[in-house]
Design a protein around this nucleic acid. Structure first.
Lengths: 156, 156
DNA sequence: ATGGGTGCAAATAATTTGCAGGTAA
DNA sequence: TTACCTGCAAATTATTTGCACCCAT
């Protein structure tokens, strides 16, 4: 079922009156996730992240990885994109400001790109049609220089 | 698992030598799906499309709806986008040319928008970084004028 | 007649959640 | 001590697939 309505329309900091909502605890598994994210320089799925942590010898549940990644995503500390299969891919957020990526479909490497022109376009498009609360979902994909060269070498 | 590699990088017509691969048959259920798509003027999920067909009195299986929609999508006859939950939304393709949509998160209405400026931005971004085979996935969401007004009337 | 199309149920797969402990603060 | 955090398994959800039967061609 589509859930247009339940979608978060734009996050504003929770208006905590007392801020008793609990600060994130510093646990072994949270550190492991953060550590894994720190070593990655491209987008990875939760499953892959979990696998790499386990492979490195640390015990952690897949559910915990999901929970932690969701927390981090909600906190804006990791970026989330969806691949063509609809699967979520995570990467630690370089900057806190709004930004977009150019992702290599071959090796997964992602670079942050200058998106101001596109932001303006999106805003304008929304305004032109009288829409409010305009947001956008933008990903640019392609084959990075390295992979392009490699591919050229293999096939003709 | 991520499947960057399996993604279709650009479709070329299958090099059928004899074209015996079977043309789509004209069945009641296929007509029903096409009919439902014809009445929709915004993106809908497969489940919703199935529901509307069933509600209209016609018998059809959900799997068939999925199969048919996938065929149509592969044939480029319907557009597919993913909502924030990763669910696929379908709509009959207005034009065969490349285009993008502005979708209302409240009522689902979608309008096709002028995307040339953004296309240029995406191409340039890719070129700047030396990427080849650059594609992009872009959706703009917001609340349409009608829904904005309605919401303003209800809540303060 | 025949091979693609269909329905149904079971299978997948990613992600979430219930619950009984564990543990940072 | 006390919430939050975790692990595990079961539950959810969207989508796909196996299979026996049906029907456009």
């Amino acid at each position: 079922m589509a859930r247009w309505h339940s979608e978060r329309m734009g996050q504003q900091a929770a208006p905590q009156s007392e801020a008793v909502v609990g600060a994130p605890r510093d646990t072994r598994q949270r550190r492991a996730v953060l550590g894994a994210l720190g070593e990655m320089e491209s987008f990875r799925s939760a499953q892959v992240i979990h696998g790499s942590i386990v492979r490195s010898g640390q015990r952690i549940g897949l559910a915990t990885v999901y929970r932690t990644l969701k927390l981090l995503a909600d906190a804006g500390e990791v970026d989330v994109v969806r691949d063509a299969a609809g699967e979520q891919l995570f990467r630690r957020c370089e900057a806190s400001r709004h930004h977009h990526h150019l992702v290599c479909v071959s090796c997964g490497t992602a670079v942050e790109v200058e998106s101001a022109p596109m932001e303006r376009w999106a805003d304008q498009v929304g305004r032109e049609h009288g829409f409010s609360a305009v947001r956008h979902s933008v990903e640019v994909f392609g084959v990075c220089p390295g992979c392009t060269r490699r591919a050229a070498g293999q096939a003709g």
